[in-house]
Design a protein around this nucleic acid. Structure first.
Lengths: 191, 191
DNA sequence: TATAAATGAGTGAGTGTTCACATTAGCCCC
DNA sequence: GGGGCTAATGTGAACACTCACTCATTTATA
C-alpha cells in the first residue's frame, strides 16, 4: 500500500499559507491543488471537503495550544507564575510558527462557533486560572471574564500588530513587557 | 422623480445585520434582498456590487469613528484625559449600536488592507496620542506601537467578549475599569 | 408626462465535489 | 530477486450548483 501521510502534510502546509494570505473563502480548492502540485481530487482522499480542511486546521491546533498551556500552567503555583509562563510560551509559539498563529487569530471568528464546550479552550483556561487567583486572594476579586478579556486582548492585539508588520520585534522579546502589563491589569479593582 | 434614500438606508441596515449574523461571504445578495423585501436588482442602483456595499459599510463608519475620537481627543489636554475620553466614548458608541461595532470588529481583517494611509484611522490616532504623551514625559518612553496595541487589545477584546455574550454588563459600565487598566498598562516601561 | 427607482427572470463565470481510471508501493511466492 | 497481486493513493475532466450581476420592463412621483 502507498503512504499518503506526506501528501496530507503538504496539503496542510500549502492550504494554511493560502488561507492566511487570501482568506479561506477566497482560496479555491484549485488554488490549493495548484500550489501543492497535486490534483484536485487528491484533497478529497484526505479531507471530506474544503471546509473540513479549514476546520481541522483550526480545531486541532487550537485544542493543541490549550493542552500545552494547561500543562505549563500546572507546573507553576502562583498566578503570577502561571501568567508569566503562559504568556511567554504563547510568544514563543507565535515566533516559531507565525503562519499558524495568523491563521488561528484571523479565522477565529468564523470557526469558534463550531467549537463544542467540551473541547480544551485557551480562553477558558485563562479565565479559570484567573478565577482561581482571585479566590486565593492573589489579585483583587471581580469578574474573571472581564479580567481574562483584558489580558487576552493585551497579548493578542500585539500579535495582530506583529502580523500586520506594525511591530517589528519578535513577540518573545516583548514577552516581559506583556507579562508586566498583564500583571498590572490584573491588579485593577473590578467594579 | 422617486426618492431612493430610504431604500438605501434599508439596504444598509439589513445588510449590516446579515453580515454580522452570517458573515459577509456567507450572505448572498438574494439574502439581503429577501430580508429587505426588495428586488435583487435594486441593490445595484445604490451600490456597484456586494463588495462595494460591504466596503462602504466598513470604511464610512470606520473613518467616522476616527473623526469623532479625534475631535474628542483634541478637547482634552493630558494623555490621561484623552485616553479616558476616547475609551469611554468608544464604550458608549458600542452600546448605542452593537451591531455596527460587531461588524467593524469582526470584518476588520478582511477590509483593513483596502484602507489607504490618508484615511483617518482610529488605531493611528491612538498611536499618535500615546506617542505625544511619551514625548511630553507623561508616561515612560518606549515603542508607541506596542503601547497602542496593548491598550487597543484591552478594550477590543472586552468588546468581543460582549459580542459573544461572555460578558453581560454594558461596555459603558465597564469603561472606568478599562480606563484604569489602560492607564496602568501605559505606565509599563517598554524595553 | 418625464424621469428616476424598482423589479425579477435570465445569464454565465466560478466553485466544490465526484468518479472512472491510472499509478504506486508493500507483500508473497516461485 | 523479480514478477505478479492487491489495495491505497493520485489524477483531472466532467458535473451540478451557486451566486453576483444584467437589462428589458414596470411602477411611482414631482
Amino acid at each position: 500500500m502507498r503512504d499518503g501521510t506526506k501528501t496530507k502534510k503538504l496539503i496542510n502546509e500549502t492550504a494554511l499559507k493560502l488561507f492566511v494570505d487570501q482568506g479561506v473563502t477566497e482560496t479555491t480548492v484549485r488554488d490549493i491543488a495548484a500550489a501543492a502540485r497535486i490534483a484536485e481530487g487528491t484533497l478529497y482522499r484526505h479531507y471530506a471537503g474544503k471546509s473540513e480542511l479549514a476546520w481541522e486546521l483550526f480545531s486541532k491546533n487550537f485544542v493543541d495550544l490549550a493542552l500545552k498551556l494547561e500543562l505549563l500552567q500546572q507546573g507553576r503555583r502562583t498566578l503570577k507564575g502561571k501568567i508569566q509562563a503562559m504568556v511567554t510560551r504563547f510568544c514563543g509559539f507565535f515566533d516559531e510558527d507565525p503562519v499558524l498563529f495568523s491563521y488561528l487569530l484571523l479565522t477565529q471568528h468564523g470557526q469558534l462557533r463550531r467549537l463544542t464546550p467540551d473541547m480544551p479552550h485557551p480562553v477558558t483556561l485563562l479565565r479559570q486560572v484567573i478565577a482561581r487567583g482571585m479566590e486565593r486572594g492573589e489579585i483583587p476579586p471581580g469578574d474573571s471574564n472581564v479580567a481574562a478579556a483584558m489580558v487576552l486582548g493585551l497579548v493578542l492585539q500585539v500579535a495582530v500588530f506583529k502580523i500586520y508588520g506594525t511591530i517589528d520585534q519578535s513577540l518573545t522579546s516583548l514577552a516581559p513587557t506583556l507579562v508586566d502589563a498583564a500583571w498590572r491589569v490584573l491588579r485593577v479593582d473590578f467594579a
